[in-house]
């Protein structure tokens, strides 16, 4: 098991002891009627193995981005446990990363896990060149040899099918689709085991979207990392993922093989979601 998320929740607000039990899909709300807190993620459990691709779907505000941010440790969970392969305690037992020291978390974030955001400004440093952004991550993952950094950066520029001559250009000088490619190059340059993607192609031209999705798929096959991808586009989910997680009001509505979720959805909400798109 690469990633094991157990019962993770995120509550925004003062929170009371009823928040989790009074919200979620079966209550048809994400706001706690007792204290008014927003339960963005409510007791979610999921896992990802090596090479697996998970998709997360659900309506706006259902907690998809929050869940990714919880996994990536962008934000702290209110409760729950997250285990990541290789993170162990003194006795070699899996250790909840929510209780690990900042140094361990920082290593996970700079090497083993990478995040690709919908907004390239969140994933790229716009004051650095394309090459500088990639180099920053390679250095963050522990590489100190200048020649290695440079040749790795060039290699990733090639992998995203970009002219290496553009390595010194700044993010502003690239199109939206190219910025996303640079984000991908940067994210992968630390050879992560898990790539998290939050709506990586939303807002791009359809033809550009398609090319970026192809690129992601190709790189995944080449490099063999696992992925969790958030998308409201069931077409993307269908072509890219093995397993799909359906969320509503912060809760997990349904979990299954992607073709099963799309062709034999069990939950009323999933049936509605699938039929509204087909």
């Amino acid at each position: 098991m690469l990633l094991d998320v157990r019962n993770v929740s995120k509550i925004y607000g003062t929170s009371c002891d009823q928040c989790l039990s009074l919200t979620g899909v079966e209550h048809d709300r994400a706001i706690c009627p007792e204290c008014g807190s927003v339960v963005a993620v409510n007791s979610i459990s999921l896992s990802a193995r090596k090479n697996e691709i998970l998709g997360i779907v659900g309506e706006s505000g259902s907690g998809k981005s929050t869940l990714l941010q919880l996994i990536y440790q962008d934000i702290r969970a209110s409760s729950g446990e997250i285990f990541f392969q290789g993170v162990t305690d003194k006795n070699g037992q899996p250790s909840n990363i929510l209780h690990e020291p900042p140094s361990a978390v920082s290593r996970l974030r700079s090497k083993e896990m990478s995040m690709i955001y919908q907004n390239p400004r969140l994933g790229l440093n716009f004051l650095f060149s394309a090459g500088g952004n990639i180099a920053e991550r390679i250095i963050g993952a522990g590489e100190r040899r200048y020649d290695e950094i440079r040749s790795n950066a060039l290699d990733y520029i090639r992998r995203i099918e970009m002219e290496t001559s553009r390595i010194d250009d700044y993010p502003e000088e690239f199109s939206g689709g190219q910025q996303q490619r640079i984000q991908i190059a940067k994210a992968l340059s630390s050879s992560p085991q898990l790539l998290l993607l939050d709506e990586p192609t939303t807002g791009l031209d359809v033809s550009v979207q398609a090319k970026i999705l192809d690129l992601i798929k190709e790189l995944q096959q080449d490099m063999g990392f696992s992925m969790i991808i958030v998308s409201h586009d069931l077409g993307v989910i269908n072509h890219l993922t093995d397993i799909t997680v359906v969320m509503k009001h912060g809760t997990l509505v349904e979990y299954g093989l992607t073709d099963q979720i799309l062709e034999d959805p069990q939950h009323p909400y999933t049936q509605l979601l699938v039929s509204s798109i087909l």
Partner: peptide, 9 residues
Amino acid sequence: LKAIYRTYL
């Protein structure tokens, strides 16, 4: 066939 392949539960 879909049930054997687990596309159908």
